[in-house]
Design a protein around this nucleic acid. Structure first.
Lengths: 202, 202
DNA sequence: GTCTATATCAGGATAGAC
DNA sequence: GTCTATCCTGATATAGAC
């Protein structure tokens, strides 16, 4: 008995929806496709969820939550601020699949629906804030140049990842993603202070 | 008589398709919507184009061409390499609408169709190459640090724009786009050599 | 070249039996 | 809770008249 089969109906529906939204987007995902992948009947689906958008909302919340945890594992890890940002940028990714959250950003029905947009908004807002915190902490420790703007730089880092996916998918090749990441890491490395600097040590 | 009305049927169809692809993506755009916006009948449309994908191909080629021209106006302009990249990054944009080419990257049917993907691929390939050329030229002139990797940095610049759109649409606010651009410009500014440097002058 | 049928299938959901 | 039947609309295209 597979893991999938032992899960509850509701859980299987949410997971199917997560997968399909990632692969096909919101417009491209039909209730029929969801229930077929989940292996449940139509009546079953409409019993647990009011319809497509309710299913999508549950799926997006789940995906955003998972992505946040994954990012936190890198950004909350050990090392300097540069190390932690580098860990986030270079963590293993299935580049050509793109970002399951960033992708939804291109879906009209999602962006125009405040409820559906909220998980995306919160996720990216948290991400930029978290990266900015890491960078600001690096500055306080004297690791990074004081002139660096943590908030703007955090947006840049997050944008490089999302834009890297776009470039890679256009090329059908992960190379542009990797190049973009290496490019921003090199620029960031130039902001790393060479000496232990002015940090207070006991 | 409006400009639209005096155009030929074929031309009106292509323009309608360009608009709709930008707004709704490929899956979200129906032949019916195209012909209604163009103000032509169904028979007319299938006379000039074999179907939806042929129409999309014509539209994407046109859009990519226009975008390339727009980018060239900035990147081929006057000033230092930094100035020209900055001109590209900060040129006026309707940020919340996103990039009409980058958007298609999230459309399964487009990316999986080699013919439809080609215009996207060529456009971004050209863009990264053009930015890399500008940066390399800046290095030869002694404007930019020799250690900078023009190819990787070019990918970063292109990614920041595409990713900036994603962040802005998630937030329903252009601010993250602007922040990402300012962030990468500040990082790039740190690569500008302070002196006229080693350039040969007559 | 353009128009109006016509055809087929999928999307998205409701109804009511079990 | 789950199933099957049914409904209505739209997507995508073909046919053949004008």
């Amino acid at each position: 008995m597979s893991t999938e089969e032992r899960l509850g109906t509701q859980e299987r529906l949410v997971r199917s929806t997560q997968e399909l939204l990632w692969e096909r987007g919101y417009v491209g995902t039909s209730p029929k496709a969801i229930l077929e992948r989940a292996g449940v009947g139509q009546g079953s689906m409409y019993h647990h969820f009011s319809g497509k958008s309710a299913l999508a909302l549950a799926a997006l919340r789940r995906t955003a939550q998972t992505m946040q945890q994954t990012a936190e594992e890198c950004l909350g890890g050990p090392g300097t601020a540069y190390d932690r940002v580098a860990a986030y940028l270079t963590r293993e990714r299935t580049v050509l699949r793109g970002c399951p959250i960033g992708r939804m950003t291109q879906d009209r029905d999602v962006v125009q629906n405040p409820e559906l947009r909220t998980p995306l908004d919160q996720m990216f807002d948290w991400l930029r804030g978290r990266i900015a915190d890491v960078l600001a902490e690096g500055q306080r420790r004297g690791e990074l140049a004081a002139a660096l703007d943590p908030v703007a730089t955090a947006a840049t880092v997050a944008a490089v990842v999302q834009g890297g996916y776009v470039l890679a998918r256009a090329a059908d090749d992960p190379a542009p993603f990797d190049a973009a990441v290496q490019g921003v890491l090199a620029l960031l490395a130039a902001q790393v202070t060479s000496v232990g600097a002015t940090g207070d040590r006991d």
